[in-house]
């Protein structure tokens, strides 16, 4: 799944520059750090609902920007459900029905497993540099880390969020907080990162909280248990046949 590297690496870039670079440079830096050939990520998603919380465990194999394969491990009901993303296409497989179904159109807007994220949010794989014009608008200290505040404005019309504001760690080049806005300037979603740690030689966000601010509730927590970079992933994993295996 592309979205996991997006989140993890977007939020956890590494770097040595301590002086004030340009906003584009910072974005480039964040984007560059995503350029691992492949990643294998184990994670848990904690979804808070009105009736209590649920934890969904999954493991993802990702190659480049276009290919990803995710398998859900827990709870029992979700175990064995798999998703395959190749470019703009998304397929899902459920063992109970033994069917592979393409998720398209309207379905992409649905939330993933009841979380505050939609399939579309997951599918977003264009780099920030490509999509947004960036300006540094200030700096702030978050969780004892010095951050630049960068404002991003959409370069073209086809983006889900017209504007974003990101707080980037000046030293590690990872994003510690992100606000997403509509054209009208209305805040729509927030992302908060904590528990940044070194894994496999990179700074990785350990805990990310997504929140749809229009909605009541505590949002969705995303916990990264482990990340491995640049491992060999067998090519057959990124085929529909692998879904049924």
């Amino acid at each position: 799944m592309k979205w996991i590297p997006c989140i993890v690496l977007l939020l956890a870039g590494g770097g040595l520059f301590a002086q004030q670079p340009t906003a584009d440079y910072i974005l480039q830096k964040i984007d560059d750090n995503q350029n691992a050939d492949s990643r294998i990520i184990s994670s848990r998603m904690i979804i808070h609902g009105r009736r209590g919380s649920r934890t969904i465990e999954s493991k993802s194999w990702i190659e480049g920007d276009e290919k990803s394969f995710t398998e859900y491990l827990a709870p029992a009901r979700e175990k064995g459900t798999k998703m395959l993303k190749l470019g703009d296409d998304l397929w899902t497989y459920s063992p109970s029905t033994d069917r592979i179904i393409r998720i398209s159109g309207h379905m992409l807007r649905q939330s993933v497993m009841g979380s505050d994220l939609s399939y579309e949010d997951m599918m977003e794989d264009h780099s920030l540099v490509e999509m947004y014009k960036a300006t540094i608008i200030g700096s702030e200290r978050i969780d004892d880390r010095d951050c630049w505040i960068i404002e991003l404005t959409a370069k073209n019309e086809e983006v889900a969020y017209y504007a974003r504001k990101i707080w980037v760690d000046r030293e590690r080049y990872n994003i510690l907080r992100e606000d997403r806005f509509g054209k009208s300037g209305r805040l729509l979603k927030t992302t908060t990162v904590s528990d940044v740690r070194m894994q496999d030689g990179r700074w990785v966000a350990g805990r990310i909280v997504f929140k749809d601010v229009l909605k009541n509730g505590e949002g969705t927590e995303f916990l990264v248990d482990s990340v491995e970079f640049n491992r060999d992933i067998p090519a057959y994993l990124f085929s529909k046949a692998a879904l049924k295996k």
Binding site: E78, S96, T97, R99, I101, M107, Q110, G114
Partner: peptide, 16 residues
């Protein structure tokens, strides 16, 4: 026919 929907907890669900 396969039904695709969400469970009462919001997870995607399939049923033949």
């Amino acid at each position: 026919a396969t039904f695709i929907g969400s469970t009462m907890y919001g997870s995607i669900t399939f049923y033949n």
